[in-house]
Nucleic acid binder design. Sequence first.
RNA 1: GGAGGGAUGCCUGAGUGGUUAAAAGGGACGGACUGUAAAUCCGUUGGCUCUGCCUACGUUGGUUCAAAUCCAACUCCCUCCA
Length: 417
Amino acid sequence: MTEIRSDFLKVFTERGYLHQCTDLDALDKAFADEIVTAYIGFDCTAKSLHAGSLMQIMILRRLQQAGHKPIVLMGGGTTKVGDPTGRDESRPLITDDTIRENMDGIKKVFEKFLTFGDGPTDAIMVNNADWLDKLEYIPFLREYGPHFSINRMLTFDSVKLRLEREESMTFLEFNYMILQAYDFVELMKQYNCSLQIGGSDQWGNIVNGVELGRRTNGFSLYGLTSPLLTTSSGAKMGKTAGGAVWLNEDMLSAYDYWQFWRNTEDADVGRFLRLFTQIPLDEVARLEKLEGAELNEAKKILADACTEMAHGKAAAAAAAETARQTFEMGQTSEGLPTLEIPKSELADGIPAATLFQRTGLAQSTSEARKLIKGGGARLNDEKIDDEKAVLSLADLDGEGRIKLSAGKKRHYLVLPV
RNA sequence: GGAGGGAUGCCUGAGUGGUUAAAAGGGACGGACUGUAAAUCCGUUGGCUCUGCCUACGUUGGUUCAAAUCCAACUCCCUCCA
């Protein structure tokens, strides 16, 4: 193909967001000549999005910065059906109430990354339940059904893999791709949205939408996908000791979020800097060349930049400072996660295992006991040897608090009140 | 509607009357080594008021001194036939 001309696609390819495109040349021309409206859909299966969706969010942010219009499509309708892509089993059905709650939680994160409003390049958020809920079965089937070939649908990975693995796929799930295709056409009609972006696993769904638009209305639609993200050691992106790396502060603290990025594998630093920060490419090139322990500096810059975007400058700085005190100075920092317990309870004595369980450092008191037995539990930085140890006021440190640690990285402060 | 196969711990998957909280692998967590990395090695991996007790092999009931293992019914899934 010829040289890429548009600013957006230049950034998109240089930074490593590009996986596939339905027609890169034509799309490049569109981006160079006009304001393109593009959308990415998000399922409402949890109260917050997690790091796995961060790449899509960054893409919308970049799109807006390059002078185009992003649409955040909330899957209020499609979540009721459940995307079978990449799943061996049907999703459990989610109730309407839960979907609504999830959507409210997810909305919050976009305000941090995008500028919403009524201007030509302001982001908008729409909910596909607005049109999907109203569909009438027979008219919909008659109008759109003829454009879908079952033969073809069976060849899409989302369906094919299920059938090959001899897992069942219900008719409900089978319809997901039809609805997603219809979304695209609807967004084109309502908002002149001509581009759908998504992860590479969404390719089949996206292509369906592009074709449906062409067949029903003669639209010229485009599809663009980003690579599926895994860490260099092959693990799925977005897991940490405590579970998923949520983007909402009430699901995962800024400190833990910062820690997640700080713990990036060496081999991923450059890639993550390009994908998840806006640090200039020449600076990224310099950072990723650092060797050995020096690479840790790059990881801190990555963590700072990511945390700043998701939680704000102040929270990022606080998280970095807490980490510095905890790991580099070996001190007890105010910024660590904190649990308050009644002073009277501590005066009576409280088993260490129970306290570990209450902070969440251990899932159960049994697990806490095993942690102690295995030598991974510490009290004010001293190893706990007795799994039946009982803590009391005598265990408070000079500052009047107790620091509990599970392993080297997970710490908690217990404050008597 | 008919015939057959299946449902085991976070996941995959062995076990087909007692020594089974249940092999093995994966994942996860902890330890060692390091650089708050990876790889490697070691340990742990149902819960609790923990030398004991309680719950667990789809659900419910039964046989037995004893069941994940045998029987019956039910639920769900798969395959083939109509």
